[in-house]
Amino acid sequence: MPETHTRLALVASPTDRAQEAESELRNGYDWVEFDRADVVVALGGDGFMLQILHHMLDSGRIRPVYGINLGTVGFLMNRLKSSRPLEERIARARSIAVSPLWMEATTNAGEVLTSWAINEVSLLRETRQTAKLEVVVNGKVRIPELSCDGVLVATPAGSTAYNLSANGPILPLGSNMLALTPISPFRPRRWRGAILPENAEIIFRARESVKRPVLVVADQKEVRDIREVRVRAWPEHQLTLLFDKGKSLDERIFAEQFMV
């Protein structure tokens, strides 16, 4: 857990609220550059937090992140107002480890593109025509043809986002599981998805990929006209999020199961 002498870096989303908060905080603390920081303080919403985490994964400069919500939902963030000074909040914060997904997409043109995903990797039909996908798990074809609007693989951290909206299961942090959830499945009609171990490799192959084009989205990165997508968790590149006591991500995920 960070001590009060921890070196802090400050980053903010370009929104007016976040920029105003940054101006107020900038003069109140001794900040350091990102590369010299022990902890990064991120001002913004969940989308901005995902951008920061992706930047860390791409650059290899991974730091614990304490987010302050100046966006809309703020599921990955802490509240703005508190009676405690920021340094004390960070020193007392609880650490939560999050394992990202690694996505490798091959397009119809043969181009191979890769990306990380903290929440989910989702495949979606590009046109009015239903997507037809072959689903392979650990080298075995589990569904020869899934007719659907799409399908997604979600981490525990992302299981309460798009996955929950698609009627997927909520996964507790530390469960070492992944949610495989169809989006508006037509056939097999009764298939509602699966819960897989974190070490599973999932392959989606688009059938009739030219006639029925499919795109893939890894958090915020989109690739169109894909032929095949490989997804697996990457626990070797764990990220660390810091939360105020009693407001941590695992408690929020747990509480989501009792909301009516």
Rank of each mutant, 00 (worst) to 15 (best):
P14R: 13
F75Q: 04
E33P: 00
L196D: 04
N176F: 10
V137R: 09
H55R: 08
R128N: 06
E236I: 11
V229C: 02
G150D: 04
P182E: 04
D244G: 04
S59V: 10
A255M: 08
W234A: 15
Q238I: 00
Y162N: 05
R94T: 15
Q257Y: 05
R205Y: 04
M1N: 13
R125W: 01
N27C: 08
H54D: 09
T240V: 15
L124S: 06
E208G: 13
E87F: 09
N78V: 00
G158I: 02
M77R: 03
L180D: 11
T127W: 00
P144G: 03
A154L: 10
L50G: 05
A42P: 09
T72S: 15
V39C: 06
S99Y: 12
S159V: 03
E33W: 08
S175R: 08
Q220I: 04
R192M: 12
T15R: 11
R94L: 15
E20P: 03
E22Y: 15
I195G: 02
I202V: 10
E236F: 10
S175T: 14
M177Y: 04
A21R: 08
E120A: 09
R7I: 07
V32L: 11
L10Y: 09
G139D: 06
V216C: 01
T72I: 07
A117C: 07
L133C: 05
T6H: 10
Q220G: 06
V260G: 13
F75P: 03
A12H: 05
N108W: 01
D46Y: 13
T15I: 06
T127V: 02
L239R: 12
F34C: 08
E134I: 02
L133W: 03
L76P: 10
G45M: 10
A91Y: 09
G45K: 07
